[in-house]
Amino acid sequence: MAGHIPLQYSSTKAGKRSAQEPLIVRFLLITAALAFLFLFLLLPLLAIFITAFEQGIGVYAASITDPDALSAIKLTLLVVVLTVPLNALFGVAAAWAITKFDFKGKSILITIIDLPFAISPVIAGLVFALLFSAHGLFGDFLFEHDIKILFAVPGIVLATLFVTFPFVARELIPLMQSQGSAEEEASLTLGANGWKTFWFVTLPNIKWGLLYGIILCNARAVGEFGAVSVVSGHIRGLTNTMPLHIEILYNEYQFAAAFAVASLMSILAIVTLVLKNIVEWKAGQHG
């Protein structure tokens, strides 16, 4: 669902010469498509970097080494380190259960895995607020034991886990379905145990799909805004992730600083796109 990009193996060869449009039509169509992409994708990207350096390199450097910015970067990294491996593990387990076995309720499970993509990030944050706020289901328990989840790091981690958890599973399920389980069965018949089979047969087969899912999961975990915004409480230096830090700077009219931090995230986005294309290319070679 939303946010899910299936891994594509095909090359981008141009079509055959026959049944083509006249040169002028081709030219107009290409121009229209490029103009649209320039206006909607390239220009915003350029605007980020140009605005970031508008007040000079000094302001830029000061903005990204500001203690609040550094603590936002640290928190974002912490959230990624906690959420991405957990969701990758879940993705592999879910794909294994769904593609290697036939059981009742399978299609319901697949639909549930899709759910976070269909839900507004604000609602994803809201559900954790309902669970852990003072009036929430666990409110009394948490208060008695002096555990803080909402407006603290655990809440941010949970909300990020929620919005990013379908990525790896959605990537692996169609891939493992198309591969079948003949190779695993052969390995077991030859005497390897389950873990060995998974490690030496399944994992090499799914590594590109897994990596692809992890890249997408990582990008979303770094950039999640709506869900995290609900549960964070916006405490500077403590519960502000990078996107939330950008929002605060922007709302305080510190545009150069906001765009300086935004430019860091944009570089990460570009790296994500490059990695994604490398993985697609590699998967195309092996697939």
Partner: peptide
């Protein structure tokens, strides 16, 4: 350009918003 099409998935929404 083909690779750039996925930019909206990779770019944090808040960054896209302010840009």
């Amino acid at each position: 350009i083909d690779g750039l099409v996925d930019l909206p998935f990779a770019l944090p929404t808040a960054v896209a918003g302010i840009a």
